[in-house]
Design a protein around this nucleic acid. Structure first.
Lengths: 225, 225
DNA sequence: TTTATAATATGATATTTGTCATGTTTTACG
DNA sequence: CGTAAAACATGACAAATATCATATTATAAA
């Protein structure tokens, strides 16, 4: 099994604030997991006994709404930590995490994380910084949800994925989502998401091959009104 | 000037995790401010050099959207700390804070807060817990914004204010907002907020006297569809 | 490969919400 | 107290979005 103190991923998240010794301790009690596309990592309401460090792959965090729709709140990238908040808040998970691609994650037990938060102040400062960033992002999403049209939100989602998850060799977005997923990010009906994406295609803003999407005009998406 | 170590408010927020000595230090460098209803405490983009501890009164945190509307993201109560996130994230304020009633706040300089975060791990645990709670709340708001109707969101807003801010002797909500404020919380046009409140009145769910609102049927608001 | 199932696509229509216009009421202030 | 400005209210209509129906296409399993 790979060692945390040698793992490049730990440099991308709050774990980078830990000492070599602390990382070695974690290495000794972590477990690796492989999760297949579509599988659930944890579910809303579940009690989490640790955090997941995403070593490879992509997943979505979502919450079931009263009307039966599964609103996607955040997309999670290689390097991110999952489940921090529930652990810190000492509550069951508020969101479900589902793999959008095959994933490799490491599970780090709660006691290790909490222990380090109490002992290592630069680790906790880093965790707080991450949370502050998340809060800012959430506030911005709330404003967008409240004030922008479906067209604008979908354009922003495409741009967000482009800048944060990148493109493959052929120029397709690295994240491949169903139309339903797009609808559940934007907060609209699946048919509406399909329609808007079709319009974007007609307007030459994107091109598609099956589920794969290629951005043709970043500017056009940016200037969406 | 009142002393932090004797101030009851400090028991309602993260400051309760500080020692008597730490509170006395803060007491020595804090400044008190009185802010009138409608006045700005700080503005989006401004650099904050400390946090505000709300001793009395109520304020709103809002963000200007591209379409000129001022989306309200959060209502802040006596006891809350303002500006934590910007301080921790080391960024300018993402939101503006405006007094909704006459307020009394204490300004605590940045160095004190950061110093205590580094020295006192139970203080930073408490701050993290608060942030985890805020994040959970934000996620829930995103889901509501995306999936619920204006009627439902307005009903929820009224219930939220009722449970978190309470009622006065006559049964009116303690927070008095304009119809425009309600619209900016819910993320709708002012006319729509007015119309929905009128409907609620006709349906016997609420009664109003000027800007004051009295909840008549909590159940009716809860079961809104 | 075939076949069942899910995903995508699109039209028709209903519903929700926004916008504009206009009038009334309340509030602030000289 | 009177008056201007702001807030509230409501109708008429437009625009955005949801819903339902029905094809078509892609995908996965036998």
């Amino acid at each position: 099994m790979s060692k945390c103190e040698q793992c490049i991923i730990s440099q991308f998240n709050s774990l980078k604030a830990l000492t070599r010794d602390e990382l070695m301790r974690i290495s000794g009690c972590k477990t690796s997991k492989y999760i297949k596309k579509g599988e659930l990592i944890f579910e809303e309401g579940e009690t989490l006994n640790g955090v997941y460090c995403v070593k490879d792959g992509i997943c979505k965090l979502s919450k079931l709404s009263a009307n039966g729709k599964d609103q996607i709140v955040k997309l999670v990238l290689k390097g991110d930590l999952l489940g921090q908040r529930s652990l810190i808040g000492d509550e069951s998970a508020n969101l479900s995490a589902t793999a959008l691609s095959d994933m490799e994650v490491c599970f780090i037990p709660k006691t290790e994380i909490i222990g380090n938060l109490q002992k290592n102040s630069s680790f906790s400062m880093d965790v707080m910084k991450q949370m502050a960033k998340d809060l800012k992002e959430s506030d911005n999403i709330i404003v967008d949800m409240a004030q922008k049209s479906v067209r604008q939100r979908l354009a922003e989602t495409l741009l967000y994925i482009d800048t944060n998850f990148g493109r493959d060799d052929e120029g397709f977005l690295n994240v491949v989502l169903s139309r339903e997923d797009y609808a559940n990010i934007v907060g609209t009906a699946t048919e509406s998401a399909i329609r808007v994406l079709s319009q974007f295609k007609k307007e030459g803003l994107i091109s598609t091959t099956g589920k794969q999407i290629k951005i043709k005009s970043k500017n056009g998406l940016l200037q969406m009104e």
